[in-house]
Design a protein around this nucleic acid. Structure first.
Lengths: 231, 231
DNA sequence: TGTTCAATGTCGCAA
DNA sequence: TTGCGACGTTGAACA
């Protein structure tokens, strides 16, 4: 990711035609080539941008542009359409480059969070004699959905998904690797729990010694309702 | 605007609940207090954000968080709702501050651009004997829509809007101030042209010696069609 | 891969 | 302020 703060002007043509008068702005060039042009206010939407896939060419300004104070022109061209963003750079106030790596992405805690709460209440669904240690057990790479102990006192890490895909198994694998380094917990067994577990995910989980558990959301809510009515 | 690159994790609660596992990301704190949390790919939409109006408090992490490697926690609270974004900072790789100033904002060249083209063709609408110098006459603060000369050879700068508001008069005023510094052009007279001119804008324009011109888009297109049919 | 639908939608305009 | 519609919508789930 490249961060540039510069006095600049810009023109966009594509779905519509628009331009930005000269002002100081933040330019972000992401690893995939996409470009964002932000002002120092407003919402998260940039003033202008180019979505990936796209390529950027830095070209020298023509004589007239030089006359106006343009030092360089960024031509950002979309690869699959004729969307085009041209940025006239006047004065560069900051320019830095950063390695960020891939991002695990946002996790929305909707049904998934509810499933987690229900399973925490009904921890015996993991097997007789299981006890809850805690929900959202923190690790360096993010919280594990549930940490429990089985009847024999051994640790069990549970990853919960609405739809159980390979990604979820990979995620649980990373958690297990980390948790098993902790002598207070090790050995930690893994349980992959989801409303629906895809065949590929099931195969991968079994290959790694991870237990699969299909959760019946409606049944679990029913038990919860019954339990609630008792109080 | 503050730019921070850091290994971080985040939690959002408000319209929904969501969290971001630990990864290296770009954090942008805008002058209005809004916060963006960007990964190094994807579209212009941040992974997570807080819209203005909001306030940020930097708090010390609790013992458990320190254990996980958290060095600081940013609590960003929306002022008018209970939307809340908490960012756990682990390692700060970059931190810089920049003064950007206010942004003139995006100008969409739709009807406005068409009006400009039509008026350039029908420049006599400014008055008999007027001649076009050029459209998009460049200045340091952006292009003037139309530069023309009147029957006597004096310069005329035209600002075109679909809806003529006070902002447009202010904009034209800035252009005139700049253009009048150029001895080759000065004195430059201003014309504020729009499909509809708001009373307040008209008063301000007249006060500054700027001529108001109401443009009849349909009529101008009609003339254009007739002219086109001649060829 | 294309299509449909929700969104922490956002944004702009009119009443 | 509030409501409504458009968006360079984006993003996810489903066929």
């Amino acid at each position: 990711m490249r961060l540039v703060v510069a006095r600049c002007a810009a023109r966009y043509t594509g779905r519509l035609a628009a331009h930005l008068p000269l002002a100081t702005r933040l330019l972000v060039v992401k690893a995939d080539g996409s470009v964002l042009l932000h002002s120092d206010g407003g919402s998260y939407k940039p003033l202008n941008w180019m979505s990936p896939p796209c390529t950027m060419a830095v070209v020298a300004p023509d004589a007239e542009a030089v006359e106006r104070g343009v030092t360089a022109v960024w031509c950002v061209q979309h690869t699959k359409s004729d969307d085009r963003l041209e940025i006239d750079l006047h004065e560069v106030l900051h320019d830095s480059q950063h390695e960020l790596g891939v991002d695990p992405g946002l996790v929305k805690d909707g049904v998934e969070a509810h499933l987690q709460a229900l399973l925490a209440e009904q921890i015996q669904l993991l097997g007789d004699g299981h006890t809850l240690v805690r929900r959202e057990y923190p690790t360096a790479i993010g919280p594990v959905d549930i940490l429990a102990r089985d009847a024999g006192g051994a640790s069990v890490a549970v990853e919960i998904k609405r739809r159980g895909d390979i990604d979820g198994v990979e995620q649980l694998t990373r958690y297990l690797e980390l948790l098993n380094r902790d002598p207070h917990l090790s050995p930690v067994r893994g349980v992959f729990a989801a409303q629906e577990i895809k065949p590929q995910a099931r195969v991968l989980a079994q290959d790694r010694g991870i237990t699969c558990l299909v959760l019946d959301y409606d049944a679990m809510r029913g038990v919860d309702d019954v339990a609630s009515r008792l109080f």
